[in-house]
């Protein structure tokens, strides 16, 4: 902008304008590596908004394991730890045990959480580890270029299931929230998506609850976000949401699978 702009006019604009939308403080100004229309960008922002709203950036430590979100350590303004593929729950456990008064979250993909890191996930959950897990279920391995994930649907064509996922040989997709909801250490297990403004608001509410439950010391929380990977699915962003609604949501129904507060009639 040129310096000759009338500063009086600027002042007038300033007085009248009200900031309606800005970058959450918990996000740095680094440019993300996510593809256009990818759910990662939306969900990452929601987590940051929740951190801002709860005013916990200074006490928060995030863990980003291997996957498309591995570089989230550059995107969040809170302290960040990059973890090995699948090991985020164990790394988060170590952090939280040393820093019981901090807020520790892990942001994991489906290959990360439900395949290579399933043992770490189940055990952190059953220990009731006081951490909040954001789980991006996009039914594919994004970062490595579109291989079959543990959550890929029966018949889904991927780079490593070129004839469609054959349940005879590759078995069935894992429904993570259903599975984890059977464990006593789990405080909250909820499945959301981010395909519409309404669903984005619901997703944010769920993420906020996962952080609040951690702060209240209630146990392990997981918010599974049924997500899109337009790039590796080979769709435009809007077609990707369409495919997600038609194919993923029937297999992965949205909803609350466990909420210990609700179960106790506290809300």
């Amino acid at each position: 902008m040129s310096a000759s702009i009338d500063s009086a006019a600027n002042e007038m604009v300033d007085k009248k304008s009200e900031i309606l939308f800005e970058r959450p403080h918990a996000l740095t100004d680094a440019i993300t590596n996510y593809c256009p229309g990818c759910s990662h960008g939306i969900v990452q922002r929601l987590v940051a908004e929740v951190i801002d709203e709860l005013g916990i950036e200074g006490e928060t430590v995030g863990v980003c394991p291997v996957g498309c979100s591995v570089m989230a350590y550059d995107f969040y303004s809170c302290d960040m730890v990059q973890a090995a593929h699948g090991r985020a729950p164990a790394v988060a456990t170590g952090l939280k045990r040393v820093l019981p008064d901090s807020v520790v979250f892990a942001y994991q993909g489906d290959g990360d959480l439900a395949s290579i890191g399933m043992a770490e996930t189940i055990h952190a959950a059953t220990r009731g580890e006081k951490i909040s897990v954001i789980f991006i279920n996009n039914a594919i391995y994004g970062m490595t270029g579109g291989q079959m994930a543990p959550t890929s649907l029966p018949g889904q064509v991927t780079q490593t299931s070129p004839y469609g996922r054959d349940t005879e040989t590759a078995g069935y997709p894992i429904r993570v929230c259903e599975l984890l909801s059977t464990l006593d250490g789990v405080a909250l297990a909820q499945r959301v998506t981010v395909d519409s403004p309404k669903n984005v608001r619901l997703a944010k509410k769920a993420i906020r609850k996962a952080f609040e439950y951690q702060i209240q010391g209630l146990g392990y929380s997981i918010i599974e976000v049924v997500s899109t990977c337009p790039t590796n699915w080979g769709f435009s962003p809007s077609d990707a949401f369409e495919w997600m609604r038609d194919n993923m949501l029937p297999y992965y129904p949205l909803g609350i699978y466990k909420d210990i507060k609700a179960a106790k009639g506290e809300q």
């Binding site: 430590v61 164990a90 790394v91 988060a92 456990t93 170590g94 045990r97 040393v98 820093l99 770490e120």
Partner: peptide, 26 residues
Amino acid sequence: GVYLQAESEVAAINMVYGASAAGARV
């Protein structure tokens, strides 16, 4: 302090990684 029996050595060393990142002697 904390003694934690991990689910595997893989998990144990990654807990060590997290605890060390937090600044502790572990």
